[in-house]
Design a protein around this nucleic acid. Structure first.
Lengths: 100, 100
DNA sequence: CGCTTCCGTAAGCCATAGCTAACGGTAAGC
DNA sequence: GCTTACCGTTAGCTATGGCTTACGGAAGCG
């Protein structure tokens, strides 16, 4: 969650949609330098959102379904309890209205 | 997404699970002062993740299903395309293996 | 072996963001 | 009206974090 905070880092992450990309390809077109992209990838990797795969001097980065899945479950859990709370409040409100 | 970056802010947000809470109740138990919580709530509100409801001098904050839903859809879209890309890579890899 | 490509890391600078302390404003109770 | 409770906003400090520049390592190529 913290890993996806920075806008530039989200840009890098979104460029990973569609499959694995080497660092150079990711940095090209982005408004920041290549080392900056490397640093972002490091953060994303430590967060479990991205995987690294080496091939010679090049390193391909791709989205890690495990990390993304964990994030999805976190949001979903939030979604469920939030809706429950919302329904409970509506019910309580209806009860209040019924009393007067 | 940026709004949920800060750990303290996530703590505030998680305290909103279970329904509406006044600012004082949220700040109690948190490691920061009450004004800090107010500032976090302001950010969450501007992000559309939280709603405000006034009752006298007190203001109740609760999770806004709309904002949370938008976040959920963003993640879900990511999840779908990421899996598609993953499947495509597996297929391409199988094709490679078949060639040799 | 040089040379080049592709990349990670370290140092340093600078803007941003979170925190506290202090203040002001509004509603309720007496 | 005075006091108290509850809360938002501001000013100012400090730390965090993102960016660039520079350097160094590892693998292909001649």
């Amino acid at each position: 969650m913290t890993a996806l905070a920075d806008p530039t880092r989200r840009l890098v992450f979104e460029r990973l949609r569609g499959g694995a990309r080497p660092v150079g390809a990711l940095a090209a077109g982005l408004p920041v330098s290549r080392p900056a992209v490397s640093q972002h990838l490091k953060v994303l990797k430590e967060a479990g959102l991205v995987r690294e795969e080496r091939d010679g001097t090049r390193r391909f980065y791709s989205i890690d379904p495990a990390g993304l899945g964990a994030l999805r479950r976190w949001i979903d859990g939030f979604w469920d309890t939030a809706l429950d709370a919302f329904a409970a409040e509506v019910a309580a409100d209806a009860k209040q209205r019924g009393k007067r």
